[in-house]
Amino acid sequence: MAHRLPRVVGALYAALIYGFIFLPVVVLVLFSLQATTLPVPPFTGPSLRWYDAVLSDRRLTAALGNSLLVALLSSALAVVLGFLAAWGLARFRPPGSGLWRALLTLPLMVSYLIIGMGLLILLNQLGAPRSRVSAGIGHVVINLPLCFAILYSQMGEQQARAEQAARDLGAAEWQVLLLITAPMLWPALFASFFLSVTFSWDEFIIAFLLTRFDTTLPVEIWNLLRAGLNPRTNAVGALVFLVSAVLVASIELVVLRRRRS
């Protein structure tokens, strides 16, 4: 009897922790299936009417498109830049490479609010309009350090020697990058891209500060919330969560598959 108690306490503790983390999401998703107009108990669903409402709302679908565009393009750019920076610093060790590395990863410590404000002031000074492009630039700023850190950590000796072998066999530098370095780093490239997409996808502050008419989905959700609670906000929130969950799951899958092999 006595040895069972710690197990019970442990299970209870775990249930509390996971409940704390996931209960809000469960409530959000549950009441997105509400059949009536208020997302509060009692539960009257399930019904897909609010999903239908979201997908037929031009503003929301436009915001969804903007979010996808900004996430995919800014992540692609962040991965390419992070990859080149990691490769250059790992392979050629320019003078002061420690300082360069620190400078590249520093934005990880700066709050999104500060980055957004800084970019906003800069864009104002330059007279550039707030748009998807400026939000995308903001997302490159926050995701580049992450991509760089992930890719730099994967630039091992094994790759370095394979690159040497490729050069020895007559490969030009761009061929080494394209045919050896990138394919060997494929899982890390994949992971950093999808992680960037995940972060960009539900990023609010920078997108809020740097877009004006063509807003992204999180900003549009915030607009909805200002009008009060509505199962429509639940439905669109559930959609955002679903996309993030799929992205994270696909990263896990790739990383796990690599570990096993």
Partner: peptide, 20 residues
């Protein structure tokens, strides 16, 4: 001359095969 442009080829100690 860089390795790519000389008439030499190297067999590396750890073989450095391309795993992919």
């Amino acid at each position: 001359l860089p390795p790519a442009r000389r008439p030499t080829a190297t067999v590396f100690q750890d073989y450095a095969l391309f795993p992919h």
